Amino acid sequence: MKKILFFGDSNTYGFDPAGPIGGRYPEAQRWTNILMRSLGPEWTLEADGLNGRMIPDSPYMQGMLWDSVLRHEPDVLVIMLGSNDILSSRAEEPEDILTEISGKIESLMQYLAIQKKRAGLDFQIMLCVPPKMHTGVMRFDRTSGELPAVYRESAHRFAAHFIDASSWQVELTGDGVHFSEQGHKAFAVRMAQELKNHTL
């Protein structure tokens, strides 16, 4: 049996922007639960999603990720973060935002490589680019569309599997950031394909 840990932000949490503050889609409508049902009994899935989460780039935040790994003991760790890093950036140019994110990703992947070696663990890491945002703010949307090159390079350098969900045409809600109900379904289908084709 394979255990997969998804570490992400509000879209992994299942946030519903049309619901009350902090509200979530019903469990059956979240992509993580749809995915779990489609994978079958030979897989187990843990979803560690948090609204507003950014790429861990401090010892405390990186430690939270590692604590989650030790708690769940996955065979596969899928990291899907970056949207909030774009939205919170004060940089005016997409190139500068991408430089910020590249530094965070490199720091995180290096941290995980060190921790895996120290702990003697051998889980697979999959680095996933979030679906492309459509916020109406040009520098944010352009940066979102250019994330694949940054993530692909880091994944290659640290022998992780690269997933480009920005190309999946996932339907978003009116805020251009969060998955719609149909988006959750579509994302689950594509992620299932990735896992079945590229996991150990």
Rank of each mutant, 00 (worst) to 15 (best):
E153W: 00
E171A: 15
A160H: 03
C128M: 15
Y151S: 05
M138V: 12
A149L: 13
S154R: 07
F158S: 14
D175A: 08
R157G: 09
E146W: 06
W168G: 15
A155E: 04
P130F: 06
H134S: 15
H156E: 12
I163D: 04
F140S: 13
R142P: 11
D164R: 02
V150K: 05
P130G: 13
R142T: 14
S154Y: 02
R157W: 00
V137D: 09
D175E: 05
D141F: 03
G145L: 07
T135L: 09
C128I: 07
E146T: 06
D164K: 01
S167K: 10
F140Q: 14
F158L: 08
G176Y: 00
F158A: 12
D164C: 10
R139W: 00
E153G: 01
R157E: 05
S144E: 06
K132G: 10
A160P: 09
H156R: 11
F158E: 11
R142K: 10
P131V: 04
L172C: 11
W168R: 08
S166C: 05
G145W: 00
P131I: 03
A149N: 12
D175N: 12
H134G: 14
A160N: 09
F140A: 15
A165D: 04
G136M: 07
I163A: 12
E171F: 02
H161M: 02
A149V: 13
D141I: 05
D175T: 07
S154K: 06
G176V: 01
E153T: 01
G174L: 08
E146M: 12
Q169E: 14
L127M: 09
L147N: 02
Y151N: 05
V170K: 07
L147M: 13
R142W: 00
Q169H: 10
S154M: 08
E153H: 03
R152V: 01
Y151W: 03
A165H: 02
T143N: 06
M138E: 14
